[in-house]
């Protein structure tokens, strides 16, 4: 039997939905539409003239091997950031969940890094790994390892991944911990009585029951890695060495704000929009099927 509450007529529901629709239209559809529109032109920076180029901006971008390489860089970067930030967060959440005393303190301390803005986090990590005065660089030097992310592409990627994941771990931790605490203790206790050790319980009961949280975080973290890590890249590597850490969103900034090439920048935004759209669809279509709510 249908138990949902339904409204009669059309006007009241429409009225109630209007604020949300207006906000979406003004703050999402309008700017997105502008980006699509601008991507079809080569404008001059001051907005004095615009050249219609149709799909010329996209053609220019996609025929550039460096832009295409940036897709691979972005993929590697996003996967690493998502894995590191979610993996560490899950580990910490499982540990914090088992704590009986002082868990509040641990939780609070672990959440702190989330309050640090990405650009500031970038500067902090840069200081630690500064090739000249960095603390970590110095210790590595004592161990005989010559850290130089200014020229070494792998080290540069590692550093921006760690710096981007760091603040994110707090956010993920919060969700994982909440997810863990929502799992009924009776289920776990039943398994324990049956003789399942911690790891078995985690693999067969806890992790599957945690999957809605994990899935949500996966989507959110990939979007984060795609868009919000700009500040970290900007402060630590500026996309270098060579193009080792030039992710797509950094290139949008570089072309738009450094190069004043608004056409190319808009076209790249549109491409990013499409990629993230596709990724989210894939996630909902294929991964969500394996999620147990």
């Amino acid at each position: 039997m249908e138990k949902r509450v339904t409204f009669k007529g059309i006007w009241l529901p429409l009225l109630l939905a209007t604020p949300q629709m207006l906000i979406t239209a003004i703050f999402f559809f309008y700017p997105a539409g502008q980006a699509v529109w601008q991507s079809l032109f080569i404008p001059d920076p001051f907005g004095l003239s615009m050249q219609w180029v149709g799909l010329g901006n996209f053609e220019f971008l996609l025929s550039d091997p460096y832009y295409r390489a940036s897709f691979a860089t972005t993929a590697v970067f996003s996967i690493l950031v998502t894995l590191v930030s979610m993996g560490v967060a899950l580990y910490l959440a499982v540990l914090a969940d088992r704590l009986i005393k002082g868990s509040g303190t641990y939780r609070t301390l672990l959440i702190w890094p989330y309050a640090v803005a990405p650009a500031v986090a970038g500067v902090l990590w840069l200081f630690m790994f500064n090739t000249r005065v960095g603390v970590v660089t110095w210790y590595l030097g004592q161990l005989g390892y010559d850290w130089n992310h200014v020229l070494n592409e792998g080290e540069a990627m590692g550093l921006v991944v760690v710096a981007s994941s760091w603040g994110r771990i707090s956010y993920n931790f919060l969700f994982f911990l909440a997810g863990l605490q929502a799992i009924p203790k009776s289920v776990i206790e039943a398994a324990a009585i049956d003789g399942a050790r911690f790891w078995t319980r985690f693999r067969t009961i806890v992790f599957p029951l945690l999957s809605p949280t994990t899935f949500f975080l996966l989507v959110v973290n990939i979007v984060y890695a795609f868009f919000e890590t700009f500040g970290v890249i900007h402060t630590i590597t500026s996309g270098g060495p060579q193009q080792a850490t030039t992710i797509l969103v950094y290139k949008v900034y570089a072309d738009g704000f450094v190069g004043q090439d608004l056409g190319s920048s808009a076209a790249q935004s549109v491409i990013l929009l499409v990629i993230v759209g596709i990724l989210t669809i894939i996630q909902f279509k294929f991964i969500e099927r394996r999620v147990h709510y």
Binding site: L151, N152, S238, G239, Q242, A254, D255
Partner: peptide, 21 residues
């Protein structure tokens, strides 16, 4: 034109030389 960006490209390419690539 776009010279700030061209400098960025030059930086990238020079880094390739300094790294021996």
């Amino acid at each position: 034109g776009s010279f700030d960006q061209i400098r960025g490209i030059i930086d990238e390419e020079l880094e390739g030389v300094w790294a021996g690539d």
